[in-house]
Write a protein that binds this DNA or RNA. Structure first.
Lengths: 69, 69
DNA sequence: TGTTAAAACGAAGTTAAACTTCGGGTTAGA
DNA sequence: TCTAACCCGAAGTTTAACTTCGTTTTAACA
């Protein structure tokens, strides 16, 4: 079973794609860099708590759906 | 609407209580201190990603249920 | 009332993971 | 080709998570 970071990354990428927004747009709206978003989607690291909330807000989903896998 | 840390903290406390385990037991099984667990439950800070996974494991729930509120 | 376990709480210091920056490489589509 | 979007590694920075120490509170119980 893949690690939580990997699973979270895949879900993040999936939800972002479904919303039709780019990594750059997500980065801008969360005050993060594109590299950080990329790293999250590839499971290199997970977001800290405050950014988890920001990401969910921008994607327009509840946090729990980022962990629905 | 309460912040994510506050909501998460309340949910953590609720799930831990339901399982009938103390903060000390949870701390021991997650390699954290009692103070850290206490701080999380009171919304002072959220766990980092790796510890989020550990906490869910010890409580015997999927991560997403820690964000179900 | 007195005792104890469990948890709350604050302050101050440490650590490590999140995050950035820089550079180059890959993929997919027009 | 050309370009937008994304991948990827390495090295440095930042800051929130985490610890440590100490005190206080709460609730349950003899």
């Amino acid at each position: 079973m893949a690690s939580l970071k990997i699973q979270f990354g895949k879900k993040l990428k999936q939800l972002r794609s479904e919303k039709g927004i780019t990594q750059e747009e997500l980065a801008a709206k969360t005050d993060l860099t594109v590299e950080s978003i990329s790293n999250m989607e590839r499971g290199k690291f997970g977001p800290k708590f405050d950014n988890l909330e920001k990401i969910a807000d921008v994607l327009g989903v509840e946090v729990k759906w980022l962990f629905d896998f």
